[in-house]
Computed example of a mutant assay.
Amino acid sequence: MRRTDGARRRLGSGAVSIVVAAILVGALTLTGILGWKWYSHVTAGSSPYDEIGIDVNARLPAPIREWGCARIMERFPRAVPPYGCQNGQP
């Protein structure tokens, strides 16, 4: 049985809204997970060299990155600063 052009269903605005909402919820969830991972890395991590924490910290804006680096250096004063926290790095 073939459908004609008139019988085809199009995505309505309700379906598009659901897709957009799902994308936004996914983006917010990912942001929250990475934000919490970064925050726990700089305030309570067992090592200053957590790969995900270092990667997230290195990509943050300078004021937030500097705050995170200061917390890490307070907690691990004798450790070599991780990537993103060393002098001369952007």
Rank of each mutant, 00 (worst) to 15 (best):
M1Y: 09
R2E: 04
R3L: 15
T4F: 09
T4W: 11
T4D: 15
D5I: 05
D5F: 11
D5Y: 07
D5S: 10
G6M: 08
G6L: 12
G6D: 11
G6K: 01
A7T: 13
A7S: 10
A7I: 07
R8K: 14
R9I: 14
R9Q: 14
R10D: 09
R10E: 11
R10C: 01
R10T: 03
G12S: 14
S13I: 10
S13F: 03
S13G: 07
S13T: 08
S13W: 08
G14R: 09
V16G: 04
V16F: 12
V16E: 12
V16Q: 08
V16H: 04
S17Y: 04
S17E: 14
I18Y: 00
V19S: 10
V19C: 06
V20F: 05
V20K: 07
V20W: 02
V20P: 06
A22C: 10
I23C: 12
L24I: 15
L24S: 10
V25Y: 10
V25W: 13
G26R: 01
A27P: 14
A27W: 15
A27S: 11
L28F: 11
L28H: 06
T29W: 13
T31M: 11
L34A: 01
L34N: 00
G35T: 09
G35M: 08
W36L: 14
K37M: 08
K37C: 01
K37S: 12
W38H: 13
Y39N: 04
S40A: 11
S40I: 05
S40K: 15
H41P: 00
V42Q: 02
V42T: 11
T43W: 11
T43Q: 11
A44I: 03
A44T: 07
A44Q: 12
A44Y: 03
G45E: 05
G45Y: 02
S46V: 02
S46F: 00
S46D: 15
S47T: 15
Y49S: 04
Y49H: 07
Y49N: 02
D50T: 06
E51T: 10
E51F: 04
I52L: 15
I52N: 07
G53Q: 10
G53L: 06
G53A: 07
I54K: 02
D55T: 11
V56N: 04
N57C: 07
N57D: 03
N57H: 04
A58M: 08
A58G: 02
A58T: 04
R59V: 00
R59I: 00
R59D: 06
P63Q: 00
P63R: 00
R65W: 02
R65D: 01
R65M: 01
R65Y: 01
E66T: 07
W67A: 04
G68M: 07
C69W: 01
C69Y: 03
R71G: 00
R71H: 10
M73V: 01
M73F: 03
E74V: 08
E74R: 10
R75L: 08
F76L: 03
F76W: 04
R78F: 13
R78H: 12
A79F: 13
V80L: 15
V80I: 12
V80A: 12
P81Q: 02
P81E: 03
P81T: 05
P81V: 07
P81M: 08
P82L: 15
P82I: 13
P82Q: 14
Y83T: 11
G84E: 08
G84H: 08
C85I: 06
N87M: 12
G88V: 07
G88F: 13
Q89H: 06
P90R: 15
P90N: 06
P90V: 09
